[in-house]
Design a protein around this nucleic acid. Structure first.
Length: 672
DNA sequence: CCTCACGTAAACAAAT
DNA sequence: GATTTGTTTACGTGAG
């Protein structure tokens, strides 16, 4: 009751976006992201001072060198651009311009070399996921690009050395200047990289996922700086007096919040787009054609990598420049080699570095996953494999997610497909699909806990699965009806309204499903879960039917996908394996309250005997399965604990409907 | 078209 | 007597 009122605030959000927004606000408020960013920046901070401390004015010699190098750079850039366009556009040239939907087939084709046809992939994956796939692909390309950049840098370095030798007589100052110039070049290279990154990002190719946008910021696993933050980082121009890096650091910290909000998926697109239009991962359309802009070089009449749409695209700088000339001027004056720029570049480098690391990790993981999945053929089910594999192949998560492991509980701001009408709060839509994957619920909940808690979005689970989850989450594995209610309201904003309706549904489910066992307690009645029964009622594993997978995915989408995917995968792979393993069957099952560990945790073990399941209302038999606190005596079968409420049970009373239908066999087998 | 699993509504009864 | 808690039944929907 009280709970309901308390939660009123959030619910107004009809679309769920509001909820998200607020959520994001809170989330980043923690400042975890900022801290991480700061740390990162700080790492590089130490050195910068040496470089550009006093060099303000441009030296002619330096400029000369500068020009020379720029020419080299240009060639490099050109090449890069070609390469880039060759990589990204050719592949999906046509598609890129249109909505992501169009990209799908291509990306799918790219991503799922084996096993699946694009159509299949399409069927299985929702557009967002496909997009994510594409992103992953792009990221790989990016890596290649970066490698190329490195090479170019080396070349430049050589060039510099040569020149230095040639001009030995030059005063040391000049040499120093040269170095500075060189450094500038390097920085530009970095910028280029970043630019490229951003471009891709803008096109929704490399962008972060909703999860990531928030996750990393909140927990900042490895001081990872997500691309989207970058702009924000840049934005902060160090205070005049202060060491640039510090300022950057600070700004990064401060801005983290906004960054999160800005990037959080559904968040308003316009939130201080650092560079021109920073489109959301989703919003493909608005994207300008950055490549063209950035693709050119300084010399090229109309463009410069840092110049586009009439404004300076230096991170954090949106100065308007009439033409290229003006821009160049601006670039030279405002973004000359100085502490600030250097620091920014360092930050940029860090960012790139992090991304690289991240990418490597994710790639590795993907490889491992694929390798693992490909081994599955051993599994009895024939078709299960293709599907699973497809899912793996396509698993969008791979790319963006910061090593989830490190990212701890990552509570994405906008996990499930909000956009999807199905989840819309208002609609009484029923998408129970996901329910089938009961286990996923735990992991998904774990991940999206915050989201469901605050967003008025109906969780993609059935009442049964939710109830079960609620019960399993408690140490005792038992809850009173009221406690279940409370859990619902506590965990889901959605259940803070229409209480009569869903409470009725909860009760209905408790009564209806055999898997919920009512146990009379000293204090009253509590509800427990008979895991075996619950498992029984589970529909055939998803692996069997692609459509199921599809449903699930579409129902969850994005953040949720991760968890559910994993869980589903796990479930499908080891139907019962996870259950028996985790907990000790016997005594007060160690709780393992839906710990981080994906699927396994919550699932009740109870491999126990095969003594089928009695008509639901006779708890006795269950007692050993579901340990009910202070219910020792239960063991006796006919002594039904005291279900005064329960239908006059047993003895002869005709088989309560279907309840006993399932008694036949040990659940274990058929499930798999 | 049928069946199943679900969600929702509602009637009813027992317990608080 | 009003609520809460449980149980059932009925109906509609979506998917297989």
């Amino acid at each position: 009751m009280m709970v309901e009122s308390a939660s009123e605030t959030i619910r107004s959000a009809p679309s769920g976006q509001n909820g998200v927004g607020s959520l994001s606000g809170q989330a980043d408020g923690g400042g975890g992201g900022g801290a991480g960013a700061a740390g990162t920046a700080g790492g590089g901070a130490g050195r910068d001072t040496a470089t550009g401390s006093d060099s303000n004015g441009e030296m002619s010699p330096a400029e000369l060198l500068h020009f020379q190098q720029q020419q080299a750079l240009q060639v490099a850039r050109q090449f890069l651009l070609q390469q880039a366009s060759g990589l990204s556009s050719p592949g999906n040239n046509d598609s890129k311009q249109s909505a992501s939907a169009v990209q799908v087939p291509v990306s799918v084709a790219m991503m799922s070399p084996q096993m699946l046809t694009p159509q299949q992939m399409q069927q299985i994956l929702s557009p967002p996921q496909l997009q994510a796939l594409l992103q992953q692909q792009q990221a790989l390309m990016l890596q290649q690009l970066q490698e190329y950049y490195k090479k170019q840098q080396e070349q430049l370095h050589l060039q510099l050395l040569t020149q230095q030798q040639a001009g030995k007589q030059q005063p040391k100052e000049a040499l120093g200047n040269k170095q500075l110039a060189f450094q500038q070049q390097l920085l530009q290279m970095q910028q280029l990289q970043q630019q490229h990154l951003l471009n891709l990002q803008r096109q929704g190719l490399v962008s972060l996922q909703p999860n990531q946008a928030s996750g990393p910021l909140q927990t900042l696993p490895q001081a990872a700086v997500c691309p989207s933050d970058l702009p924000q980082l840049w934005k902060g121009e160090g205070a005049p007096g202060q060491p640039a890096e510090d300022s950057v650091k600070q700004e990064g910290l401060d801005l983290t919040g906004t960054a999160t909000t800005a990037t959080s998926f559904a968040a308003a697109p316009k939130v201080s787009p650092p560079l021109s239009h920073h489109t959301l991962p989703n919003g493909q359309p608005t994207v300008l054609t950055p490549r063209r802009d950035s693709s050119s070089h300084e010399e090229t009449p109309g463009s410069h990598p840092l110049y586009g749409h009439g404004e300076c695209k230096w991170p954090g700088c949106e100065t308007l420049c009439e033409d290229l000339g003006q821009f160049i001027k601006h670039l030279n004056t405002e973004h000359a080699l100085d502490d600030r720029s250097t620091a920014q570049c360092r930050v940029q480098m860090q960012v790139v570095q992090q991304l690289e690391i991240q990418l490597a990790k994710e790639s590795e993981r993907l490889q491992a996953m694929m390798a693992h999945l490909h081994m599955r053929p051993s599994e009895p089910k024939p078709f299960s494999q293709p599907v699973t594999v497809s899912a793996a192949d396509s698993f969008p998560d791979g790319l963006v997610h910061p090593p989830t492991s490190a990212a701890a509980p990552v509570t994405p701001l906008r996990p499930p497909g909000l956009s999807s009408a199905s989840l819309h709060s208002g609609g009484p839509t029923r998408r129970r699909s996901s329910d089938k994957f009961c286990s996923p619920i735990s992991s998904e909940l774990a991940q999206n806990h915050e989201f469901y808690k605050n967003a008025d979005v109906r969780p993609p689970f059935t009442y049964a699965s939710l109830i079960r989850q609620a019960i399993l989450e408690t140490p005792d594995r038992q809850l009173t009806l009221n406690e279940i209610y409370n859990w619902f309201t506590r965990m889901f904003a959605y259940f803070r309204r229409n209480t009569a309706t869903w409470k009725n549904a909860v009760r209905h489910n408790l009564s209806l499903h055999k898997c919920f066992v009512r146990v009379e307690n000293v204090k009253g009645a509590v509800w427990t879960v008979d895991e075996r029964e619950y498992q029984k009622r589970r529909p055939p594993k998803m692996t069997g039917s692609p459509t199921l997978v599809k449903n699930m995915i579409s129902g969850l989408s994005y953040g949720a996908l991760n968890a559910s995917y994993q869980a589903a995968l796990a479930e499908s792979s080891f139907p019962l394996l996870n259950s028996p393993g985790m907990l000790n069957p016997g005594s007060a099952s160690s709780l393992l309250p839906l710990s981080h560990d994906d699927v396994g945790a919550p699932v009740e073990p109870l491999p126990s005997n095969g003594s089928s399941s009695p008509p639901r209302l006779s708890p006795p038999q269950y007692s050993h399965q579901v340990q009910v606190k202070e219910e020792p005596a239960e063991a006796e079968e006919d002594r039904r604990p005291g279900p005064p409420l329960g239908p006059p049970n047993p003895s002869t009373s005709g088989p309560p409907e279907d309840r006993d239908l399932e008694e036949e066999l040990p659940p274990g087998e058929e499930l798999s």
